[in-house]
Structures are given as C-alpha cells and as structure tokens.
C-alpha cells in the first residue's frame, strides 16, 4: 500500500484523561475508497478517535494524518475534503433545514446547487423550510448526514450514522454509503457498536476495545472466524485442553469465563471429544454444540459474555 492510497493513518495514537486511557496506542490505516467500520462497545474509544481525526481533541501522544495532512491545530484546509458527523446530530434549531445547509455550504465554499442536491439525496426536500428544532430525531440525523455530504467530500467520518434512523432509513443510508464508495471513490470511516449493522456494508472492520485495536478483518475473514464450536464443561479444563490438542490435534481451544472450554470444531466431533475426556478420567458435565453469530463473536472479543 503506497502512502497515496492511505486516506487515514494514525501511529501510536493515544489519549489519556488522567488515569483513564480512552485511546491507547492506536495504529490505523484506512485505504482510499474503502468503507472501514470502527466497531466497539460504548466507551471503547470510538468517538474520541473520531474527534482526534477531526482535530477536535488533541492526542496525548501519537500522530494523525488525514488525506496526507497532519492534523494539528491550524490545519484547517484539509476539512474542505472531509464530511463528518460526530456523535449526536446537531443543527441550529432556529434555522430551517435549507438555512442550516446553506450556512454550511458557505463555510465549505461549495456552490449554491449543493444545498438542493444534499436535500434530495437524504430525502429532506419536503422539510426544506421547517426549522431544525422541529425535526424528528431521524430527520435531524438526515440533516446531519446531508451536511456531511453537501460539499462532495473525499472522506466521510461518521460516528454512529444510523442513530435515530428507522430500519428503512438505515438501509437507505447503507446503500447511499456503498454507492458513494463504489461510484465516487469516497472513503468512509464509520463507527458503530452494532456488528450486524456494518458487517455487510464494510470492506474492513476494526474492533476497538478499551482504546486498543483488537482485530481487523474483512467480511470473509469474519465469517471464517465465527462459526460452530462446542461449549464444554469439564473438570480440570487446562488438562482437558492439553489432552484435546495432543490426542485429537485440535488447536482452536479457548477457556470460557465460566471455567469451561470452547472448542472450535463442528458438532460431528462431539462423540470423539467426549470419549477422549471420559477415557482420561475427567468429569464431563456439559457438551453443547453452538453456532456462533456475529454479535456473539463481537461480544466474546470485547469481553461481553459468550
């Protein structure tokens, strides 16, 4: 990957608030034209990372480069090519939808036609002359997305873009983002706390937990990582794990928080495993085949239970 292909790059990005490590040594590389989903539970460091990418929060240490520009105080020119939505949708409540967008257009240096186009794109034309303070939560979110897209940015940084949208709105926005990436080469960096929401959309997914990047993968890799396993309750789980590795050649074995084992094999291997454990004199209390879904995989990675 050449540097010109990298749209977002962070090196050792860290933000501490006293003893709290909101973001801890984050190394990210987002490629041009890809949709990168930044996934984590609440408080994982997603919003702080996005704020640092936008220069709203200064890192304690580390470096941020966006579209080839180091993000430091005073580096504002780069934001003419960045669209963004940070946390809750916000607009000037006394101004109409059109006025809010026109205000943004002027400051972004976009043409007058951009306001109408953005409203059409997000289905806001019917609400053009309504005050933003009177909009529903979903339409406020649409207004924020329209503001982000108004100046045809090369990079979109979206913090929980589906917030407040109804299911149809979520699908609509998902399609819009896919289209922007595929047809216009727009790079999308979006955060979410719902894996299923981004799994089908994102080209790559990064899982962040307690400020650190745990894993990065694409959808196919994700499918390969999730799947069937056996949930085993057994006496002496350490000895049992060693036994299964040696005798049966099983390598994907994890301890569970309940003191059992998670063995990543299909249910057809169950009888063989049971025989091996009982034959070794261990007490087998549970052997349950489980088909893991995306959510449980995410929860398992981030310590949220099995």
């Amino acid at each position: 990957m050449t540097s010109s292909d990298t749209v977002i790059s962070t090196a050792g990005l860290t933000k501490h608030y006293g003893d709290v490590r909101a973001v801890d040594g984050l190394d990210l590389h987002v490629r041009r034209g890809e949709i990168y989903a930044f996934l984590g539970r609440n408080g994982a460091g997603k919003t702080t990372t996005i704020r640092m990418l936008l220069g709203l929060v200064r890192p304690t240490s580390g470096r941020v480069t966006v579209l080839g520009t180091d993000i430091v105080p005073g580096a504002t020119a780069v934001f003419s090519r960045v669209g963004y939505l940070v946390e809750a949708a916000a607009a000037y409540p006394d101004l109409t939808v059109r006025e809010n967008l026109d205000l943004q257009r002027r400051l972004m240096g976009a043409g007058r036609e951009a306001v109408g186009e953005a409203m059409d794109l997000l289905g806001l034309s019917g609400s053009a002359d309504r005050r933003a303070g009177q909009l529903s939560l979903g339409n406020k979110q649409r207004l924020s997305l329209a503001r982000a897209l108004l100046h045809r940015p090369a990079l979109l940084l979206l913090d929980e873009p589906a917030n407040g949208l109804d299911p149809a709105g979520i699908i609509e926005v998902r399609r819009l983002l896919r289209r922007l990436a595929d047809e216009s080469g727009v790079t999308v960096f979006m955060s979410s706390h719902i894996l299923a929401e981004v799994a089908h959309l994102a080209d790559r997914i990064g899982i962040v937990h307690e400020g650190r990047l745990l894993q990065e993968f694409d959808y196919d890799e994700l499918r390969a990582r999730t799947g069937a396993y056996l949930d085993i309750g057994v006496s002496e789980p350490d000895r049992a794990a060693g036994l299964l590795r040696e005798q049966l050649g099983l390598d994907r074995i994890e301890p569970t928080p309940e003191g059992g084992l998670r063995v990543f094999v299909g249910p057809d291997r169950g009888p063989e495993i049971a025989r091996a454990l009982i034959g070794a004199g261990l007490d087998l209390t549970r052997l349950v085949p489980v088909q893991e879904d995306l959510e449980s995989y995410f929860m398992r990675l981030t310590g949220g239970g099995s």
Binding site: T76, F79, M108
Partner: peptide, 11 residues
C-alpha cells in the same frame, strides 16, 4: 445546541 463540534471542523 451541540453545533460547536461542527463549527470547529471547517476549512
């Protein structure tokens, strides 16, 4: 109004 974050990320 929550608009400061929008205002501060402009060119």
């Amino acid at each position: 109004d929550g608009t400061a974050k929008n205002m501060l990320v402009l060119p």
